[in-house]
Amino acid sequence: MIHNDKVLEDVNALLDYDAIKDFLFMNVINAQTYQQELQTMPHTIVGNLAIVYRVMIKTTDENFCSAKITNQMMDQYGIDVSKLHNDALISSPRIMKPEILPLETLAIGTPKETALQDTERNLVVLTNEHKTDGASTMFYAGVLNDLATKLNHSLYIIPSSTDECIAVCDSSHLDYKHLENMLHEVNDSSLVDPDKKLSDHLYHYDKDEHIFEKAEDYQKRILKQKYSQLLH
């Protein structure tokens, strides 16, 4: 874990991009819910999700303290969102180290490797070592691609909360509508803290095309491809 006191010692250091860029990390929130707040923050929209950016100020083994990057700070830095995003892609895995583990390992402590063998029915949790703000792990460079390659399947992604998301192997006998209903039921229950609710939309990662999109957009794209093949 990176212990960072540098920024905390001098709050003015938050306005110095060179001082904070190694302590940037990505955070993902619902773009519609936080529409107002997003007007004041640099962000990257993916579907109905918004990636926002924070600076880790201090970490201990119990908790961490961070500050969000605002448009005013961006004016001071003199950089654009794509520069911020690319730098955050580099620093995020160091600041918020990714953890990818089978759901039963998280829930009941089944050994990680045993659980990963049953790939088709596997539910894999993507989070970070803090188990907080871990859903953004899915946007780390190569994470979804490496997981899809390891499991040898494209993936459905259930954005279960801002703290984690769940990957499920896409296979011919999987009904994606069932997954979507499951997501809606969990979101409507008391299982997810309203502040941590991420999305009502299921997502899909296509391992061959390397495309991350809403599941409904994936279904439309596949139907269109099948239809155009029929015409030729």
Results as ranks from 00 to 15, higher is better:
Ile57Ala: 06
Ile57Lys: 02
Lys58Val: 07
Thr59Asp: 10
Asp61Glu: 06
Glu62His: 05
Glu62Val: 11
Glu62Phe: 00
Asn63His: 07
Asn63Leu: 09
Asn63Val: 05
Asn63Glu: 12
Asn63Cys: 06
Asn63Ser: 14
Phe64Lys: 04
Cys65Pro: 01
Ser66Met: 10
Ser66Asn: 06
Thr70Asn: 08
Thr70Val: 12
Thr70His: 03
Thr70Glu: 09
Thr70Trp: 11
Gln72Trp: 08
Gln72Lys: 14
Met73Ser: 00
Met74His: 10
Gly78Met: 04
Val81Asn: 12
Ser82Glu: 13
Lys83Trp: 01
Lys83Ile: 15
Leu84Arg: 10
Leu84Ala: 09
Leu84Gln: 11
Asn86His: 07
Asn86Cys: 04
Asn86Thr: 13
Asp87Ile: 14
Asp87Tyr: 14
Ala88Gly: 07
Ala88Arg: 07
Ala88Leu: 14
Ala88Lys: 10
Leu89Asp: 06
Ile90Ala: 03
Ser91Leu: 10
Ser92Gln: 04
Ser92Ile: 03
Ser92Leu: 04
Pro93Asn: 04
Arg94Leu: 13
Ile95Met: 09
Ile95Ser: 01
Met96Ser: 06
Met96Gln: 08
Met96Phe: 06
Met96Lys: 11
Met96Ala: 09
Lys97Gly: 01
Lys97Cys: 01
Pro98Trp: 08
Pro98Leu: 07
Glu99Gln: 08
Glu99Pro: 03
Leu101Lys: 12
Leu101Ile: 13
Leu101Phe: 02
Leu101Gly: 01
Leu103Tyr: 12
Thr105Glu: 05
Thr105Tyr: 03
Ala107Pro: 04
Ala107Tyr: 08
Ala107Cys: 05
Ile108Val: 12
Ile108Leu: 06
Gly109Asp: 05
Thr110Met: 14
Thr110Cys: 03
Pro111Ile: 10
Pro111Gln: 06
Lys112Cys: 12
Lys112Asp: 11
Glu113Ser: 07
Glu113Gly: 02
Thr114Lys: 06
Thr114Gln: 14
Ala115Ile: 12
Ala115Pro: 03
Ala115Arg: 08
Gln117Ser: 14
Gln117Lys: 15
Asp118Asn: 13
Asp118Phe: 07
Thr119Ala: 13
Thr119Glu: 00
Thr119Gly: 05
Glu120Leu: 13
Arg121Ile: 03
Asn122Met: 15
Asn122Gln: 15
Asn122Trp: 03
Leu123Ile: 05
Leu123Arg: 13
Val124Asp: 07
Val125Lys: 05
Val125Tyr: 02
Val125Gln: 03
Val125Pro: 05
Leu126Tyr: 07
Leu126Ser: 09
Leu126Lys: 06
Thr127Ala: 09
Asn128Tyr: 09
Asn128Arg: 09
Glu129Lys: 09
Glu129Thr: 12
His130Asn: 12
Lys131Gly: 05
Thr132Tyr: 11
Thr132Pro: 01
Asp133Tyr: 08
Asp133Pro: 00
Asp133Asn: 15
Gly134His: 05
Gly134Asn: 10
Ala135Ile: 07
Ala135Asp: 13
Ala135Tyr: 13
Ala135Asn: 12
Thr137Lys: 07
